[in-house]
Amino acid sequence: MRKKKTMLASLLLTAMFFVQSIIPASASTWNLNGDTNVHDPAYIVENGTGTHWAFSTGSGIQVLYSTNGTTYQRSLPIFNQKPAWWSQYVPKQDGLDVWAPDIFYYNGTYYLYYSISTFGSKVSAIGLVTTNSISGGVWKDQGMVTYSNDSSPYNAIDPNLMQDEKGNLWMVFGSWSNGIYITAISKDTMKPTGNAYRIATKSGGIEAPNLVYNSKTGYYYLFVSIGKCCSGLDSTYQVAVGRSKSVLGPFYDKNGVDMKNGGATVIDSGNSAWIGPGGQDINGTNVIARHAYSAAENGAPKLLISDLYWDADGWPYYN
């Protein structure tokens, strides 16, 4: 009898382990408080200090920080006056209005990319500032990274830097105008070297690209925001994704449709409380930050951060 009970217990433990291994853990959205008003957040945890930072669209690049990752307060903006080169590339840029920053840590330096433009125009530019300490608050202007005009095939906004499995650096960028592009980045200048290649388009709007490599699945994932942004509760933004075995694509959605031909698998379309989620930023492979419009606060754009999970087929999800 004792032997049978032992065998039964062993079988039950084995079954429990099997069930746990095939059922993914429940994803969770962080309970944030304080000042969480953002648009197009770029999220990072600073080395050494452990401080959580969120850079976002707004006057001079808006900055939020948190010592515990959940309670945020606003810091000083990155810019308090225009760099001289802004007016050369985007003459009609409005004051200190800066869009969709991206923060990238590499070899002891923080690289903060950003874009300047005007609505409905391809006259745009991507710029760069750097620092060795975000908490120190001293940023150095590194000038123009790339630009576009009315005759360009792409719109030079929404930059995102990543490092591929071989250690090479890449930048994805772009918007509605012919979609999302990718270009190689020099490790010396941290600016583009060579041509830019189109990797995604979609009618009705596509922007805010974020490219990550997941070593566990062996895929590159291109996250994008599709639909219409910046209209409060009337926004139709959604977070979508495709994947590829190559950093240059082609990227396919779950149905096998190439993202260059409009493919995109939606993983977040919002809900009754949070409208139009998008402007996402992936931290590593396990955290996703984005903004969404709060129904409770009449469409105010708020910071949302969630744990990012990967299902058995290697696709990302969160709640």
Rank of each mutant, 00 (worst) to 15 (best):
L211T: 03
K122R: 15
K245Y: 12
I199V: 08
N149P: 11
P316N: 14
W274M: 05
P277M: 03
D35I: 07
Y111T: 02
R74M: 11
D188F: 02
M162C: 15
I275V: 14
W85I: 06
D97G: 13
L248R: 02
A54P: 07
I78Y: 01
I103R: 14
A273T: 10
P41F: 09
S59N: 07
Y113G: 02
K187F: 00
A15K: 03
P316Q: 15
I61V: 06
S231Y: 12
Y154A: 01
P77E: 09
S151F: 10
T6Y: 11
G262D: 06
S215Q: 05
A84E: 12
K82I: 03
P91A: 00
I180P: 08
S124V: 13
I22F: 14
T109C: 00
K228V: 09
V38Y: 08
Y197I: 07
S75K: 12
P24S: 10
A9W: 13
G120I: 02
K166P: 06
Y181W: 15
T36E: 05
L248M: 15
G136A: 01
K202A: 03
G48V: 04
S148H: 05
E46G: 06
L161S: 03
S225W: 11
D150T: 15
A196Q: 03
Q142N: 08
I23A: 11
Y220N: 03
K3D: 11
S148T: 01
C229R: 14
P83M: 03
I288D: 07
G108P: 01
S56L: 09
N178L: 11
S87C: 03
A125Q: 06
Y293W: 15
T71D: 15
K254V: 07
D311T: 06
G50T: 01
T285S: 12
Q73I: 08
L32S: 08
G205H: 04
F173M: 00
S135M: 12
W170G: 01
W176Y: 15
S87K: 11
R290C: 13
W85E: 05
Q163C: 06
D307E: 11
I199T: 03
T217Q: 10
D281N: 10
P24K: 02
M1I: 03
L76S: 14
K122D: 15
P41L: 05
H291M: 09
G256Q: 13
V257Y: 06
M16I: 13
D311Y: 11
T67I: 10
T6I: 15
N47P: 00
V172I: 08
S56W: 10
T71P: 09
I226K: 15
L169Y: 00
Y106V: 00
S235M: 05
S244P: 05
F173A: 01
G284I: 07
K302T: 03
L76Q: 09
Q93A: 14
S10T: 14
A54C: 15
Q20N: 14
M16C: 13
D102M: 05
G299K: 14
Q93L: 04
S177M: 04
L128P: 02
F55M: 08
Q238Y: 04
S75G: 07
D281L: 04
